[in-house]
Simulated assay, not measured.
Amino acid sequence: MSGHGSPTTEIPHQPGTRVAIVAASWHEQVMDGLLAGALRGVAEAGIEQPTVVRAPGSFELPVIADALARDHDAVVALGVVIRGGTPHFEYVCAAATDGLSRVALDHGVPIGFGLLTCDDEKQALDRAGLPDSIEDKGYEAAAAALTTAHVIAGLAADRAGATPGS
């Protein structure tokens, strides 16, 4: 399973962090699990009021994440694409992945990557953070975004306290 070897770090407590979650609408059961996991991760960080937005599908995640990254410290992007019999899977996965990477780099805002790219529905359900799932990718995406935001804030604080020439 792909979760083997994943880190076990705690999400830093950061109640002042402005976080948004954008979640696709396709595959409702999987998405409900991913969203619940992300919200649990955000709550563990002490954030009570995250912005939650639904996207029509995974292809639309980057454009909504881009809008959210303008006034949030971290964005968690959640979606699922399940392989079918056409190249649609490859196009949507590549566009969403490339778009989310671009948003992070263009804005300097961490994007928690919670886009499941699965061969079948069972793989998606196994990763959705549901009671019978073996992984919780929504929680992991939130943890990654919030931990990265904490690191970036620390780097900014270090730079602000640095003396010229250091």
Rank of each mutant, 00 (worst) to 15 (best):
G57R: 12
G33K: 08
G57Q: 08
Y91V: 15
V92Q: 01
V52P: 07
T86H: 11
S25Q: 10
V53M: 07
A23N: 07
G108C: 09
G112P: 04
C93E: 05
H107N: 14
A128F: 06
D98W: 14
L34N: 00
L34F: 00
V109P: 02
L105I: 14
G84L: 12
H72Q: 11
A104D: 06
L116S: 00
M31A: 04
G99F: 04
L39K: 08
P56T: 09
R102D: 13
L100D: 03
M31Q: 12
P110R: 04
L78M: 08
F113P: 00
I82E: 02
G112I: 04
G33S: 10
G79A: 01
L39Y: 08
E44Y: 06
P56V: 14
P110H: 03
A95E: 13
G99Q: 04
D71L: 10
R40T: 15
E90Y: 14
P131G: 10
H88D: 06
V92I: 15
P131W: 12
G46Q: 04
S25G: 11
T86I: 13
A104S: 13
V109H: 06
I82T: 02
R40G: 10
V103Q: 04
P110A: 06
E60F: 07
S25R: 11
T51Q: 13
R102I: 11
G46H: 02
E121D: 13
D106A: 14
E90T: 13
L130V: 12
T86P: 07
A43T: 10
G79P: 00
V109C: 07
A69K: 05
V52A: 10
L61H: 01
L34Q: 02
V103Y: 04
G57E: 08
C118A: 13
R83H: 09
L34K: 00
G85K: 10
G46L: 03
A74P: 08
T117I: 02
F89Q: 07
G79M: 00
D32N: 14
L100M: 09
P110K: 03
L116H: 00
Q29V: 15
G129F: 08
V22I: 13
W26S: 09
P87H: 11
I47Y: 00
A24K: 00
H72Y: 12
G99M: 09
I82R: 02
P110S: 04
A128V: 07
I134A: 15
R70Q: 15
D73W: 09
L130Q: 04
L61K: 01
R83N: 10
D98E: 15
E90A: 14
R127G: 01
V42M: 03
L105S: 13
T51R: 15
G129N: 09
G112H: 01
